Simulated assay, not measured.
Amino acid sequence: MTEIVLINPNTSAATTQMMTSIVRASLPASLTLLPKTARHGVPMIVNSRELKDSAAGVVELAIECSATAQGFLVAAFGDPGVKELRAIVNVPVLGLCEAGMQAAAAGGRRFAIATVTPDLVDDFAAKAAELGLSDRYLGTRLTSGDPRGLASDPHVLQQALEQAVRQCFELDRADAVIIGGGPLGQAAEALTARFARPVIAPLRAAAERMAALAAGRGA
Rank of each mutant, 00 (worst) to 15 (best):
T2K: 15
E3A: 13
V5D: 05
I7R: 03
P9H: 07
S12H: 10
A13K: 14
A14G: 12
A14H: 15
S21E: 14
S21L: 11
A25S: 14
A25T: 12
A25L: 08
A38I: 00
R39F: 00
V46H: 03
N47Y: 02
L51N: 10
K52Y: 00
A56Q: 15
I63M: 01
A67S: 14
Q70Y: 02
D79G: 08
G81I: 05
V82Q: 01
L85H: 04
R86Y: 07
A87E: 15
I88Q: 12
Q102K: 15
A105V: 08
A105M: 11
A106P: 13
G107D: 07
G108Y: 10
G108I: 09
R110Y: 06
A112N: 10
A114C: 11
V116A: 09
V116L: 04
T117N: 09
P118R: 05
P118I: 03
V121F: 09
F124C: 14
F124D: 15
A125L: 05
A126H: 05
K127S: 11
K127F: 06
Y137H: 05
T140R: 12
L142A: 12
G145N: 07
D146E: 13
P147V: 00
G149K: 13
L150P: 10
S152W: 10
S152R: 15
D153K: 12
L157K: 11
Q159R: 11
Q167W: 00
Q167F: 00
L171R: 15
D172T: 01
A174K: 10
V177K: 01
V177R: 07
I178H: 01
I178T: 00
G181L: 10
G185A: 09
G185P: 02
A187F: 09
A188W: 06
A193T: 13
F195G: 01
A201V: 05
P202F: 02
L203I: 06
R204E: 15
R204F: 05
E208A: 10
E208W: 01
R209A: 14
M210P: 00
M210T: 10
A211V: 09
A212S: 14
A212Q: 13
L213R: 11
A214S: 15
A214R: 14
G216Y: 05
R217D: 07
